[in-house]
Design a protein around this nucleic acid. Structure first.
Lengths: 192, 192
DNA sequence: AGTAACACGTACTTTCGTGTACGAGTTAGG
DNA sequence: CCTAACTCGTACACGAAAGTACGTGTTACT
């Protein structure tokens, strides 16, 4: 999905380069939203000019990184068993995706600076809808609280995940404990 | 606390300028951690050169803004009644300071980029200690949970406050509801 | 094997923010 | 009222990063 193909097809090595670049972009931008194009190219083990050959500008690159992260998210989330009580579904959802979401949240912050605000929300709408639906269902079942806007409940989970990622980076939270703690924290927030 | 006074005194108008600059810095950096010196000078209604007359570089300015925010925080917090059950104290603490803390959290992010990491923690240690002490006390009283590190409990409150500020800025949370929601959310997180 | 696609280096132009230098006009305060 | 302190504009040097231009060598695919 890099530069709009003019109809002609791409070579295999180009495909590989693009994949490495996008991957590196996700990694770098998650750590530092202001990572330079050069940093990303280096991390991808690729010349800066090669990168510009596939992505015309920073905006296109960030968008591609976001799209890739979102795609990975959809992939993981689509395999989660959604049956059973909302609380249990929530736990399964978080177990399989908290780290991914945490990473993407940082990436999203990066995107906020370079992409138009509307586009960011648009990309982010899909995954958010999944959690939102679960929250509503939990409310209907009477196990999730109803004294706050659903939007807040959904977003505060994001903020907690983002925080967990930060704490991990700063070594204030042991990686092996993070999953448990995130799940317990979120459960407490949503519980009726 | 701007440029190290060489012993000579400052004039009243200089004092006023400094106050306006620091105030503008807090405002601008809270909205955009990468706000330029020029932006801040303009927001203060002052020429850029005037600003440089009082703060030698960006680092000094950011530090002054942080210090001022912290000072304001201390002022507010020192007036909170700390007697009674920990839960009630928590509510009073949040009621009087959530918005200030939310603002300062954004400022802190700004500082992270320009100030050495140690210095940031150092400045931030005071206010954090207050909440930490309250959390420990609540744990002793058996009303706050003990299944997570105190550090996490303290910091996750910060992340929630930061999130609330974001939601406010994006108009996804009505300002008049924010206090109530923040308090309810934090209570749920800390409750045993 | 030949050709189009690709990798990639060098070098240039822009843009932007930081920080410095100089200097002239204005104001506070003894 | 006089002087030091302050304001503030213009201009300049510097570095970082984005993006462009051009050329050469290499590799994939038919």
């Amino acid at each position: 999905m890099p530069t709009a193909p003019t109809g002609r097809r791409r070579r295999a090595d180009a495909e590989r380069s693009i994949a490495r670049i996008v991957s590196a972009a996700r990694e770098c931008l998650s750590r530092d939203p202001n990572a330079s194009i050069d940093d990303i190219a280096k991390a991808a083990g690729v010349g800066r000019m090669t990168l510009y050959g596939h992505f015309r500008n920073r905006k296109e690159l960030v968008e591609a990184a976001m799209a890739d992260a979102l795609r990975a998210g959809e992939e993981v989330l689509s395999e989660v068993d959604l049956s059973g009580p909302a609380q249990d579904v929530l736990v399964r959802l978080l177990e399989s995706s908290w780290s991914l979401v945490a990473e993407s949240t940082a990436l999203l912050t990066a995107a906020q600076g370079t992409l138009p605000a509307g586009r960011v929300r648009e990309l982010h709408a899909g995954p958010a809808a999944r959690l939102e639906e679960l929250v509503r269902r939990g409310q209907d079942e009477g196990v999730f609280r109803t004294d706050m806007p659903v939007t807040w409940l959904v977003n505060v989970v994001q903020y907690v995940l983002h925080g967990a990622a930060e704490e991990n980076r700063a070594d204030r939270l042991k990686p092996e404990d993070t999953g448990r703690i995130v799940i317990a924290t979120v459960r407490s927030i949503l519980a009726a």
